[in-house]
Design a protein around this nucleic acid. Sequence first.
DNA 1: TGCGTTATCCCCAGTTCTGGGGAGATCATC
DNA 2: GATGATCTCCCCAGAACTGGGGATAACGCA
Lengths: 221, 221
Amino acid sequence: MAEITKAMGFRHYALVHHVDLKPAVRSVHIVDYPQDWVERFQARRLYASDPIHRASHRTNVGFAWSAVQSIISLTAADRSILAEAYEAGLGDGFTVPAHIPGELNGSCSFAMAAGEMLDHRQLPLVQLVGSFAFEAARKISRIHAPQSECPSLTERQAECVALVARGKTDWEISQILGIGQETVIQHVKDARDRYGVTKRTLLAIRALFDGQISFADVFGR
Amino acid sequence: MAEITKAMGFRHYALVHHVDLKPAVRSVHIVDYPQDWVERFQARRLYASDPIHRASHRTNVGFAWSAVQSIISLTAADRSILAEAYEAGLGDGFTVPAHIPGELNGSCSFAMAAGEMLDHRQLPLVQLVGSFAFEAARKISRIHAPQSECPSLTERQAECVALVARGKTDWEISQILGIGQETVIQHVKDARDRYGVTKRTLLAIRALFDGQISFADVFGR
DNA sequence: TGCGTTATCCCCAGTTCTGGGGAGATCATC
DNA sequence: GATGATCTCCCCAGAACTGGGGATAACGCA
């Protein structure tokens, strides 16, 4: 990572899983950012709210940090985070998202020093390097941590959760699936148990987040 | 797609969301595969069980079809599906997965005619083309999608919805925001009205979908 | 053959949500 | 000065959900 970062003309890199919920998980975390910024980032738990991370959750290909507002709208807090990163020595950069259903979201970023100009023609190269770097890191980390910590639902449970996400009541779900209401209640109960949540709303959102169901399941057809 | 497929030396391409049937709402479906195979694929609903699709759900970078068993283990049924595709005229190919949290899984594939040899050194190029093609298609499909009126929530309503999405009860939300429970009930009620939904679960998901709240609001901090 | 998983169904008590109906205060805008 | 939007609070009845406790049957796997 250090070598290719330098070869591509960048100063810093970060190859990371966006760990928010599951701190115990063994995840990819290979970072060469200004120490100052890394510490502040962790202290303030920005992995979830950092605008670059957020933007990387809404796209399939890499993007320049300076163009992040074309992906998400920036709040005042976002702008101050970006300004703070700049102060800490991080200039413009590219982030390549890396998402796999049921796994932690991640990304691979390359950054210039503050003040340096980014060459936008490099995006394709960065896209390639970022994707393959992430995949390599993921494979290595999987060798060391074969355990999957992401709960999976049975087919029936997933069907029920998808309908829960559509705002259906248990009775309505029972009619749609042609089974008893008690059965639906049980499936939803089991699904909640697997995720360790107590509310169907959070169940639906967690299932959405890690790909057990998709927005298409909710809005489709 | 046709041009670049030819330019890269391939015969067939498929740029698709892995949707469980007919092209769903806002889903991408651009295919130039042998007609015979497309029909069989749809008739037998292989979207979910097709080994190439399944493998694409477990990786971040593209792979050659002939190397699919390095990603997933193939059942007898899988092998017969692959053999059938070959019979229909599909030779070896590359598939580049495309995943975005909360959206339909998708992929971009390029294939040779049956019998032709795949040049494995092309994987990086295919990876790039596939990723950017998918992103482009995704953006276009969004533009053409009937822009559903996007209700906006007041600040207080959005705060309440974000906490609803976290699975909090109205009472818990009232404690967090330091207001009365009745007020929270009212805000949630108003937010439901704006979206025209009757369940807080669907409210939370709709708000997530059009960016009124984000996954970071749900899992962060 | 036994064990685990899944899917199906049932009961009950207590909590939470939903859908009606209100009202008063502030603030900006017209 | 009126009007609309927002935020705050209140009451109530009925529906829906949650968290316990059960049960049976089918299936694959060891």
